[in-house]
């Protein structure tokens, strides 16, 4: 489940990078969500410098870090003329501050690394909101953008299956990650419904006005 989840995550990021690079445009893409995702990786993968889990773990962490910052570069620098800032207006400070406060209050251990890891977990659960908000504001999304969102939504959904499996088999559970992962996946439900009923039938993703 975890491997599928990570692959779904990688596919989402590659779809987004290819969409922007091929169409040389980031229309319909929320730069704010990408900033939040880069922050999530930067604060979660600090342990790259200290602990080694596995080759796979290290490779994936570096890949997520480099691709998320590359996406930001494309949006805010290379193709900034196509960045639709009038529709990307979600106030991300309302996501950042509460996540930070919550991470300081509810965590496994009050150390810098652990609080930052917890912050990244809470922030990731709401990081897609600016993008979903932007899609609702523009009222539609290009089909490639909806495939990106579908893959991204599946990633943490698959992680939930992984957590169930690990709880049953290893009696392992991390409530912070599980609760945040459920919140994160639930946020996509509305989109999943539209994706399955519309995009898979070849229609454009049109949100009811």
């Amino acid at each position: 489940f975890r491997l599928l989840g990570d692959l779904s995550h990688v596919i989402a990021i590659i779809i987004l990078l290819l969409k922007i690079w091929k169409t040389r445009s980031c229309a319909g893409i929320s730069g704010k969500s990408q900033i939040l995702f880069a922050t999530v990786f930067a604060t979660r993968y600090l342990d790259l410098l200290t602990t080694f889990v596995s080759i796979y773990n290290t490779l994936m962490k570096w890949m997520f870090l480099t691709t998320s910052f590359a996406t930001i570069y494309l949006i805010y620098f290379k193709f900034r003329a196509t960045y639709d800032k009038n529709h990307d207006t979600f106030r991300i400070e309302f996501l950042i501050i509460p996540s930070l406060i919550l991470a300081l209050l509810i965590n496994h251990e009050f150390t810098v690394f652990e609080v930052l890891w917890t912050y990244s977990i809470y922030l990731e659960s709401v990081a897609i909101l600016p993008q979903l908000f932007m899609v609702s504001k523009t009222g539609e999304a290009e089909s490639i953008t909806s495939h990106y969102l579908f893959a991204l939504g599946c990633y943490r959904g698959l992680y939930i299956l992984n957590w169930i499996y690990r709880y049953v088999t290893e009696d392992f559970h991390d409530l912070i990650a599980i609760v945040a992962g459920i919140v994160q996946t639930v946020l996509y439900c509305d989109f999943f419904y539209l994706y399955v009923t519309k995009v898979l039938k070849g229609k454009k993703l049109q949100l009811p006005a």
Binding site: D6, H9, D47, T51, V53, H108, E114, W117, D174, A177
Partner: peptide, 10 residues
């Protein structure tokens, strides 16, 4: 010693 909560997931 307190088991350092190592996060083995991405």
């Amino acid at each position: 010693p307190v088991e350092e909560p190592e996060h083995d997931e991405l």
